[in-house]
Computed example of a mutant assay.
Amino acid sequence: MAFSDEKIIAMLNKMEESQKTNTIEEGPVRIGQRFYEFEQQAFYDDKLLVFIPKDFTDMPEALSAIKYPHSQRPETIKTNEDGSINITLNRIDQDLEEGWVEELTQGMKTILKKVNPSNVFFTDGVEEIHGKQVGYFEFKSPALDAFLYNLMFFLELGGKTLMGTFSCKYDEYEAWRDVAFQIVRAVRVVQVEEGAEPA
């Protein structure tokens, strides 16, 4: 029985898919209709390592002023070319110990529920990631012209609270959700021994 062109193309596509990596630490990852390559970037005097898409850049000041009111603007906002997908990092001057991460995570979730009752929450939890307790929750929030998907995470960094967020348009969340969790689960805090020089 002869193979039709469609069957041959489908087989080739399947072979190609099986050879692709689906992890951000191993190579380009297909998200939606394109591929993204991730690189580990260092923040906070090289104490925090986070995988970020290579083509994401710092959000321009004019756009960040619109998207994030000044009092709530994160210290770091990495974004794609049109500003629709963001990864933010913000160190808050609030003491945090490993054992408090779960309480902090639930407290932040409660605050967001009160501030905006129209937020819809999905999963939440605390995981040990590279020796650190990391709390997280994901939710859908209303924006100016659409809904957003958000994955917030929290951890202790130098005795203070580090808060991170991944966000994208809600209609793109199915393509990005797994990758967003990979970003969180690849976060590393570099522990420097007292009196030792950083590597």
Rank of each mutant, 00 (worst) to 15 (best):
E75V: 09
M163A: 08
L104M: 12
W176S: 05
M152W: 00
E81L: 14
V126H: 04
F137Q: 05
W100T: 12
K132S: 12
M108C: 10
T79I: 06
R91A: 09
D82F: 08
K160G: 03
L148F: 11
I87T: 10
T79Y: 04
K109Q: 14
Y149E: 06
F153M: 11
S141K: 10
R188P: 07
G107Q: 01
T110L: 06
S141D: 03
L112A: 02
E172D: 14
L162P: 00
T76F: 15
L144H: 11
R91L: 13
F122D: 10
N86D: 11
I85M: 10
G135P: 05
L157M: 09
M163W: 07
F137W: 06
E194P: 01
V190F: 08
L104I: 14
P117W: 02
A175I: 00
N86E: 03
V179E: 00
K113C: 00
M163R: 10
G131P: 07
S118A: 14
L157I: 12
W100D: 15
E138V: 01
F121W: 10
F166G: 03
V184R: 13
T110D: 14
R177D: 10
V187M: 07
K78G: 01
Y136D: 05
A146T: 13
I92G: 08
D145C: 04
M152L: 14
F121D: 05
V187A: 03
L96M: 13
N90S: 13
V192P: 10
E156S: 10
V184P: 01
T79G: 08
D82K: 08
E75A: 14
N116R: 04
K169I: 14
F153I: 00
R91M: 15
R188W: 03
H130P: 00
G83W: 08
I183N: 09
I87S: 09
K132Q: 15
K160H: 13
L144S: 11
T105Q: 04
F121S: 06
N119C: 12
E193M: 13
K132L: 02
E97A: 10
P117H: 07
G107T: 02
F181P: 02
Q94V: 11
F147C: 05
S167D: 11
T161I: 09
